[in-house]
Simulated scan of single mutants.
Amino acid sequence: MRKLQTLTGICLALALGVADGGVAMAKGEGDFIMRARGIAFLTDTDGTTDALGGSAETSDDYVPELDFSYFFTDNIAAELILATTKHKVKVENSSAGDVDLGTVWALPPVLTLQYHFMPKDTFSPYLGAGLNYTIMYNADKSAGINDIDYSDGVGYALQAGFDYQLDDHWMINADIKKVFVDTDIKVNGGTINANDTALDPLIVGIGIGYNF
Protein backbone atom coordinates (compact mmCIF):
# COMPACT_ATOMS: atom_id res chain seq x y z
CA MET A 1 0.00 0.00 0.00
CA ARG A 2 2.89 2.37 0.76
CA LYS A 3 4.24 1.76 -2.77
CA LEU A 4 0.83 2.57 -4.26
CA GLN A 5 0.63 5.80 -2.24
CA THR A 6 4.10 6.79 -3.48
CA LEU A 7 3.18 6.09 -7.10
CA THR A 8 -0.04 8.07 -6.67
CA GLY A 9 1.82 11.06 -5.27
CA ILE A 10 4.37 11.03 -8.10
CA CYS A 11 1.68 10.82 -10.77
CA LEU A 12 -0.35 13.65 -9.27
CA ALA A 13 2.73 15.85 -8.92
CA LEU A 14 3.69 15.29 -12.55
CA ALA A 15 0.16 15.93 -13.76
CA LEU A 16 -0.23 19.14 -11.81
CA GLY A 17 3.16 20.29 -13.02
CA VAL A 18 2.11 20.26 -16.68
CA ALA A 19 -1.17 22.15 -16.20
CA ASP A 20 -0.98 25.66 -17.69
CA GLY A 21 -4.39 26.98 -16.74
CA GLY A 22 -5.63 27.01 -20.33
CA VAL A 23 -8.99 25.84 -21.60
CA ALA A 24 -9.10 22.05 -21.82
CA MET A 25 -9.61 20.49 -25.22
CA ALA A 26 -12.29 17.80 -25.30
CA LYS A 27 -11.53 14.30 -26.54
CA GLY A 28 -13.07 13.24 -29.81
CA GLU A 29 -13.09 11.03 -32.88
CA GLY A 30 -9.62 10.22 -34.21
CA ASP A 31 -7.76 11.12 -31.01
CA PHE A 32 -4.88 8.96 -29.83
CA ILE A 33 -4.05 9.03 -26.11
CA MET A 34 -1.04 7.58 -24.34
CA ARG A 35 -1.09 7.24 -20.55
CA ALA A 36 1.45 6.28 -17.90
CA ARG A 37 0.03 4.90 -14.67
CA GLY A 38 1.25 3.46 -11.43
CA ILE A 39 -0.85 0.37 -10.74
CA ALA A 40 -1.59 -1.95 -7.87
CA PHE A 41 -2.03 -5.51 -9.17
CA LEU A 42 -4.09 -7.13 -6.43
CA THR A 43 -4.63 -10.86 -6.97
CA ASP A 44 -7.70 -12.72 -5.72
CA THR A 45 -6.35 -16.28 -5.99
CA ASP A 46 -8.67 -19.27 -5.65
CA GLY A 47 -7.44 -22.82 -6.25
CA THR A 48 -6.53 -26.10 -4.56
CA THR A 49 -3.99 -28.83 -5.23
CA ASP A 50 -5.10 -32.34 -6.14
CA ALA A 51 -2.40 -34.11 -4.08
CA LEU A 52 -1.90 -31.94 -1.01
CA GLY A 53 -5.14 -30.05 -0.59
CA GLY A 54 -4.73 -26.56 0.78
CA SER A 55 -5.21 -23.35 -1.18
CA ALA A 56 -2.99 -21.69 -3.78
CA GLU A 57 -1.98 -18.11 -2.97
CA THR A 58 -0.17 -15.42 -4.97
CA SER A 59 1.29 -12.11 -3.82
CA ASP A 60 0.30 -8.65 -5.04
CA ASP A 61 2.62 -6.33 -6.99
CA TYR A 62 2.99 -2.59 -7.68
CA VAL A 63 4.43 -1.55 -11.03
CA PRO A 64 4.39 1.15 -13.74
CA GLU A 65 2.09 0.61 -16.72
CA LEU A 66 1.58 2.09 -20.19
CA ASP A 67 -1.70 2.21 -22.06
CA PHE A 68 -2.83 3.42 -25.45
CA SER A 69 -6.33 4.54 -26.47
CA TYR A 70 -7.84 5.36 -29.85
CA PHE A 71 -11.22 7.08 -30.31
CA PHE A 72 -13.31 5.61 -33.13
CA THR A 73 -16.09 8.13 -32.35
CA ASP A 74 -16.45 10.89 -29.76
CA ASN A 75 -17.79 8.35 -27.26
CA ILE A 76 -16.29 4.99 -28.23
CA ALA A 77 -12.61 4.13 -27.77
CA ALA A 78 -10.39 1.06 -27.54
CA GLU A 79 -7.66 0.79 -24.91
CA LEU A 80 -4.67 -1.57 -24.65
CA ILE A 81 -2.68 -1.73 -21.42
CA LEU A 82 0.86 -3.12 -21.08
CA ALA A 83 2.55 -4.07 -17.82
CA THR A 84 4.32 -7.03 -16.26
CA THR A 85 4.18 -8.16 -12.64
CA LYS A 86 6.07 -10.59 -10.39
CA HIS A 87 4.34 -12.82 -7.87
CA LYS A 88 5.32 -15.18 -5.06
CA VAL A 89 3.33 -18.43 -5.23
CA LYS A 90 2.62 -20.84 -2.39
CA VAL A 91 0.16 -23.42 -1.15
CA GLU A 92 -1.25 -22.73 2.30
CA ASN A 93 -2.76 -25.17 4.81
CA SER A 94 -1.97 -28.28 2.79
CA SER A 95 -1.36 -31.75 4.19
CA ALA A 96 2.36 -30.89 4.01
CA GLY A 97 1.87 -27.50 5.65
CA ASP A 98 2.64 -24.27 3.78
CA VAL A 99 4.59 -25.02 0.58
CA ASP A 100 6.63 -22.30 -1.17
CA LEU A 101 6.46 -22.77 -4.94
CA GLY A 102 8.76 -19.85 -5.85
CA THR A 103 7.97 -16.87 -8.08
CA VAL A 104 6.57 -16.26 -11.55
CA TRP A 105 6.15 -13.26 -13.84
CA ALA A 106 2.84 -12.40 -15.49
CA LEU A 107 2.32 -10.35 -18.65
CA PRO A 108 -1.40 -9.59 -18.77
CA PRO A 109 -2.24 -7.29 -21.73
CA VAL A 110 -5.88 -6.18 -21.54
CA LEU A 111 -7.82 -4.85 -24.53
CA THR A 112 -11.08 -3.08 -23.72
CA LEU A 113 -13.77 -1.25 -25.64
CA GLN A 114 -14.86 1.86 -23.74
CA TYR A 115 -17.83 4.20 -23.68
CA HIS A 116 -16.96 7.77 -22.62
CA PHE A 117 -20.05 9.47 -21.25
CA MET A 118 -18.89 13.11 -21.36
CA PRO A 119 -15.92 13.32 -23.74
CA LYS A 120 -16.39 17.08 -24.25
CA ASP A 121 -16.22 17.87 -20.52
CA THR A 122 -13.18 18.42 -18.34
CA PHE A 123 -14.30 15.50 -16.14
CA SER A 124 -14.91 12.53 -18.43
CA PRO A 125 -15.92 9.16 -16.89
CA TYR A 126 -16.02 5.92 -18.85
CA LEU A 127 -16.91 2.23 -18.62
CA GLY A 128 -15.30 -0.59 -20.54
CA ALA A 129 -15.24 -4.33 -21.13
CA GLY A 130 -12.87 -6.57 -23.01
CA LEU A 131 -10.47 -9.48 -23.16
CA ASN A 132 -7.23 -10.44 -21.47
CA TYR A 133 -4.50 -12.91 -22.41
CA THR A 134 -2.15 -13.56 -19.48
CA ILE A 135 1.30 -14.92 -20.32
CA MET A 136 3.09 -16.63 -17.42
CA TYR A 137 6.87 -16.66 -17.80
CA ASN A 138 10.25 -16.85 -16.08
CA ALA A 139 9.10 -19.15 -13.26
CA ASP A 140 11.72 -19.46 -10.52
CA LYS A 141 11.12 -22.59 -8.44
CA SER A 142 11.90 -22.75 -4.74
CA ALA A 143 14.16 -25.30 -3.00
CA GLY A 144 12.66 -28.78 -3.06
CA ILE A 145 10.74 -28.16 -6.31
CA ASN A 146 12.25 -29.96 -9.30
CA ASP A 147 10.19 -28.21 -11.95
CA ILE A 148 7.09 -26.05 -12.15
CA ASP A 149 4.94 -24.94 -15.06
CA TYR A 150 2.16 -22.35 -15.35
CA SER A 151 -0.26 -22.29 -18.27
CA ASP A 152 -1.18 -19.06 -20.04
CA GLY A 153 -4.82 -18.03 -19.78
CA VAL A 154 -7.55 -16.15 -21.63
CA GLY A 155 -10.19 -14.23 -19.71
CA TYR A 156 -12.37 -11.16 -19.76
CA ALA A 157 -12.16 -7.79 -18.04
CA LEU A 158 -14.47 -5.06 -16.74
CA GLN A 159 -13.33 -1.45 -16.38
CA ALA A 160 -14.33 1.93 -14.94
CA GLY A 161 -12.40 5.18 -14.76
CA PHE A 162 -12.20 8.86 -15.62
CA ASP A 163 -9.98 11.43 -17.27
CA TYR A 164 -9.63 14.94 -15.89
CA GLN A 165 -8.41 17.27 -18.62
CA LEU A 166 -5.75 19.78 -17.54
CA ASP A 167 -5.08 21.58 -20.82
CA ASP A 168 -5.17 20.92 -24.56
CA HIS A 169 -3.11 17.75 -24.24
CA TRP A 170 -2.49 16.66 -20.64
CA MET A 171 -4.90 14.87 -18.33
CA ILE A 172 -5.04 13.02 -15.02
CA ASN A 173 -6.45 9.52 -15.18
CA ALA A 174 -7.78 7.11 -12.55
CA ASP A 175 -8.79 3.61 -13.57
CA ILE A 176 -9.89 0.28 -12.07
CA LYS A 177 -10.17 -3.07 -13.82
CA LYS A 178 -11.34 -6.50 -12.71
CA VAL A 179 -9.75 -9.26 -14.76
CA PHE A 180 -11.00 -12.85 -14.69
CA VAL A 181 -8.33 -15.37 -15.73
CA ASP A 182 -7.18 -18.87 -14.66
CA THR A 183 -3.90 -20.77 -14.81
CA ASP A 184 -3.01 -24.45 -14.42
CA ILE A 185 -0.03 -25.02 -12.11
CA LYS A 186 1.92 -28.27 -12.60
CA VAL A 187 4.64 -29.15 -10.07
CA ASN A 188 7.29 -31.88 -10.34
CA GLY A 189 6.04 -33.25 -13.63
CA GLY A 190 2.40 -33.36 -12.52
CA THR A 191 2.97 -34.99 -9.15
CA ILE A 192 1.16 -31.95 -7.73
CA ASN A 193 -1.39 -30.01 -9.77
CA ALA A 194 -3.49 -26.94 -9.07
CA ASN A 195 -5.70 -26.78 -12.14
CA ASP A 196 -8.01 -23.87 -12.95
CA THR A 197 -6.41 -21.66 -10.32
CA ALA A 198 -8.20 -18.30 -10.51
CA LEU A 199 -5.91 -15.26 -10.36
CA ASP A 200 -8.70 -12.71 -10.96
CA PRO A 201 -6.67 -9.56 -10.20
CA LEU A 202 -8.07 -6.15 -9.38
CA ILE A 203 -5.92 -3.57 -11.16
CA VAL A 204 -6.08 -0.08 -9.63
CA GLY A 205 -4.18 2.72 -11.32
CA ILE A 206 -3.64 6.46 -11.35
CA GLY A 207 -1.47 8.45 -13.72
CA ILE A 208 -1.20 11.02 -16.46
CA GLY A 209 -2.17 10.99 -20.13
CA TYR A 210 -1.27 12.90 -23.29
CA ASN A 211 -3.70 13.49 -26.16
CA PHE A 212 -1.93 13.58 -29.53
Rank of each mutant, 00 (worst) to 15 (best):
K90S: 14
E92V: 15
A174C: 06
V63K: 07
I203M: 01
K120F: 03
L82M: 14
V181T: 04
A143R: 10
T191L: 14
F32G: 06
A198Q: 14
K141S: 13
I206D: 01
D184H: 00
F71Y: 15
N195A: 09
L4G: 04
R35F: 09
I208H: 03
I81A: 14
G153H: 01
H169S: 15
W170N: 07
V204Q: 03
L7N: 08
L82G: 10
T122A: 10
A26D: 10
I192P: 01
H87W: 02
F41K: 00
C11A: 15
G189E: 05
F68Q: 01
D140F: 02
V181W: 00
D140A: 10
Y210V: 08
A106V: 07
G17C: 05
G47V: 04
G38F: 04
G205T: 01
Y133T: 00
P64S: 07
V104S: 02
T6A: 15
T183K: 06
M1R: 13
D50W: 01
A19C: 05
E57V: 10
P119I: 06
V104A: 06
L16M: 14
L42D: 08
L199Y: 10
G47F: 01
F123P: 03
Q114E: 11
I33L: 11
R37A: 08
Q5L: 15
T103A: 09
G9N: 13
A40Y: 09
K27Y: 13
W105S: 06
N93K: 13
L4T: 11
S59A: 08
S55G: 04
N132C: 12
S142E: 11
Y70D: 07
S59R: 03
I10S: 06
D147Y: 08
V187T: 11
Y137P: 05
G144M: 09
L101G: 03
G53V: 04
A77K: 03
V23H: 13
Q165E: 11
I10R: 04
D152F: 00
D147W: 07
V181E: 00
Y133M: 00
D44S: 12
S55H: 08
F71K: 09
D50C: 02
D149Q: 10
A143L: 12
A19N: 14
G102H: 05
N188T: 10
S124K: 05
V89Q: 09
F180A: 05
L80Q: 05
C11Y: 04
I39P: 06
D196R: 10
T43R: 04
S151E: 09
F68K: 02
I192C: 08
G205H: 01
Y133E: 00
A24I: 06
A13L: 12
K120D: 13
A40E: 10
G47P: 03
S69G: 07
L80P: 02
I203C: 00
Y70A: 07
V187W: 11
D147I: 07
S95T: 15
I206V: 12
F72P: 02
G153D: 05
